[in-house]
């Protein structure tokens, strides 16, 4: 229940940021070709990219959507498979939590050094704080999954693997959605 609500909130925020990046790029080009330049589009895009990626990061974990090579499914079955699965989640959560922690350290550094963007002079620290928070949330959600011990729910993962090469709507491997 609460998970579904988190999913919805993050989904909407991520969608809005992505739409904003697309519209900003589009408007910038239109205005420039009409002779006016919007100041600071590059740095705005950069800040929004940081926010977008980390807003959507917990959503990737929700559906076991991280790209995984599944060649050993036949070998790791039963109890051994479950243990392997839990260890995998533990490692993933650890990585996310360490990155989140260090992003917070970075944010603190940016704030105390008063790092600004080049054109508009925006503070970089708030975006870094945002990235840190979302990365930590992704880590906590991964831990929650470990504790609840949800069985393997490959979101349409097929027998030997799933994922994308920088792909698009088939992000869920062969989900066929």
């Amino acid at each position: 229940m609460i998970l579904r609500r988190i999913d919805l909130v993050l989904g909407i925020v991520a969608s809005l940021i992505l739409a904003a990046i697309a519209l900003l790029t589009f408007t910038d080009v239109v205005f420039r070709n009409a002779g006016t330049v919007i100041r600071g589009t590059v740095e705005l895009t950069e800040l929004m990219m940081g926010a977008l990626i980390f807003t959507a990061l917990p959503l990737v974990g929700f559906r076991d959507g991280h790209v995984t090579v599944e060649l050993t499914q036949g070998v790791l079955t039963g109890m051994r498979g479950r243990i392997a699965r839990q260890l995998t989640r533990l490692l993933s959560a650890a990585v996310l939590l360490v990155i989140g922690w260090q992003l917070a350290v970075k944010a603190d550094r940016l704030a105390s050094a008063n790092d600004l963007t080049a054109t508009l002079g925006l503070e970089k620290a708030p975006v870094a704080w945002f990235m840190a928070a979302l990365c930590l949330i992704a880590g906590v959600l991964m831990l929650a999954e470990l504790v609840s011990g949800r069985p393997d729910v490959p979101g349409g993962t097929v027998e030997a693997g799933a994922g994308t090469d920088a792909g698009a709507d088939s992000g869920r491997g062969g989900a066929g959605t």
């Binding site: 740095e43 950069e46 990219m49 260090q102 870094a128 920088a166």
Partner: peptide, 24 residues
């Protein structure tokens, strides 16, 4: 530890990678 934070932050804020979400 510092490298991890810096790498994640730098990659997140790379302007020329904004093409990825947009082409997708």
């Amino acid at each position: 530890l510092s490298m991890v934070g810096t790498t994640a932050f730098d990659a997140g804020l790379a302007y020329n990678l904004s093409v990825l979400p947009l082409f997708i």
